[in-house]
């Protein structure tokens, strides 16, 4: 009968009206990230890094820029490490190719800013700041 499909459709939407909703209430309820989640910024551990530059070489978009210096012993050392999230494709090639496993995703995906500058991240400074905060936090607990 003509109109049967229309009535079935109405039934479906009415049923949905009373069902549980699929909305995620995002800022209050944070999404549960999977273990393999690729996102956020690159987190570097500067002590572990041997400044080989493989991450930068493997990046398809050139979003990693690093500068190395030679110390007194003639060993290469990292002096600058910049990650441009604006150019990043999140392909994971840098992390996979790191021989020391010293970079990973920090998974803090909500870092919107008002300027493109905010997307360029000085990873060494971030790591040092984090360490300082930990030290301070640790000192506080010690007291």
């Amino acid at each position: 009968m003509y109109g049967k499909g229309l009535l079935t459709g109405l039934g479906i939407t009415l049923r949905e009206f009373f069902r549980k909703k699929a909305t995620e209430r995002y800022p209050e309820v944070r999404p549960k990230l999977t273990e393999r989640f690729r996102g956020g910024k690159l987190a570097l551990e500067p002590e572990k890094c041997i400044a080989c530059g493989l991450c930068s070489l493997n990046c398809p978009n050139g979003s990693i820029r690093l500068v190395t210096v030679k110390d007194e012993a003639g060993k290469r050392k990292l002096s600058e490490y910049e990650y441009d999230a604006g150019a990043c494709m999140y392909c994971n090639l840098c992390i996979e190719n790191c021989p020391q496993k010293c970079i990973r995703w920090d998974k803090k995906f909500d870092f919107a800013g008002y300027d493109r500058k905010h997307l360029i991240i000085d990873c060494i400074a971030v790591a040092n700041a984090k360490k300082a905060a930990e030290r301070e936090g640790g000192a506080e607990t010690h007291e």
Binding site: T34, R36, R38, G39, M89, Y90, C91, N92, L93
Partner: peptide, 24 residues
């Protein structure tokens, strides 16, 4: 997809010679 490769849109999961990681 997110479970398997960590991305929801641009996966970069299938690679030359197989897939990058086994299924979790």
């Amino acid at each position: 997809f997110d479970m398997a490769c960590g991305a929801r849109m641009t996966f970069h999961y299938i690679r030359y010679g197989g897939v990058v990681q086994d299924l979790p």
